[in-house]
């Protein structure tokens, strides 16, 4: 028994050094050498300032922007405390939340009569989902085109260019990165001579 105890302590110490120190440091060295940008969280830098990570969604609730998945974190898209809603499929609170999100989307664009794509009204698992489906982006085009005075066709092209297909045609879902799409959208605006902030009217609470 005592012998096992002594061996246990020595073994634990050695394995802690091996798997708790040598292993993560080796992986960090390889990672920083081969994929430094990704290993550091895929940051997006604009004009010398960090404006986000390619992989982490941000809150968009201004009607001039494409909106992403509803986030169940409080405050929304808080990337230091991820969480899903955990609402069950028969929970009244879920149905009430979705009903209010549908109403918000329709209030932002009363002329849009298509069914609402599920991703725009259901909370993501992480609360940080950076993507929506191309259908969910297309659904928002008329609103953004109107508020930004950009022809719809141009936005359709933008969504098409930003969309990612399945890996090898098999894995994953077709999707659009909302943050990158909105950055491209702002580029589109600044490359035109549109006055700034033309549609900054009401910011609508998506909850």
């Amino acid at each position: 028994m005592l012998k096992h105890l002594w061996t246990s302590l020595k073994m634990l110490l050695i394995l802690t050094v091996l798997t708790g120190v040598v292993y993560p440091l080796t992986v960090t060295a390889i990672a920083q050498l081969l994929f430094a940008n990704k290993a550091n969280g895929s940051p997006i830098i604009s004009n010398g300032k960090l404006i986000g990570s390619e992989l982490i969604g941000q809150q968009f609730d201004d009607p001039k922007y494409f909106w992403g998945r509803p986030s169940a974190i409080s405050p929304t898209y808080n990337a230091s405390a991820s969480s899903g809603s955990n609402l069950g499929p028969t929970n009244k609170a879920l149905i009430v939340a979705i009903k209010s999100r549908v109403a918000t989307l329709q209030a932002a664009d009363p002329d849009q009569h298509s069914p609402v794509p599920a991703e725009l009204v259901t909370a993501s698992a992480s609360g940080l989902d950076p993507h929506i489906s191309p259908e969910a982006a297309n659904y928002q085009i008329p609103r953004i085109a109107r508020l930004r005075a950009i022809p719809e066709a141009e936005l359709v092209g933008l969504v098409e260019r930003s969309a990612q297909g399945r890996l090898l045609g098999i894995w994953g879902q077709p999707r659009v990165n909302v943050l990158k799409l909105n950055l491209a959208l702002d580029e589109l605006r600044s490359s035109r001579t549109n006055p700034r902030g033309s549609g900054s009217a009401g910011v609508i609470d998506s909850h």
Partner: peptide, 12 residues
């Protein structure tokens, strides 16, 4: 990391 988010004047 601390990022300045893209949408200005957010409600949040």
């Amino acid at each position: 990391m601390t990022a300045i988010v893209v949408q200005p004047a957010s409600t949040r």
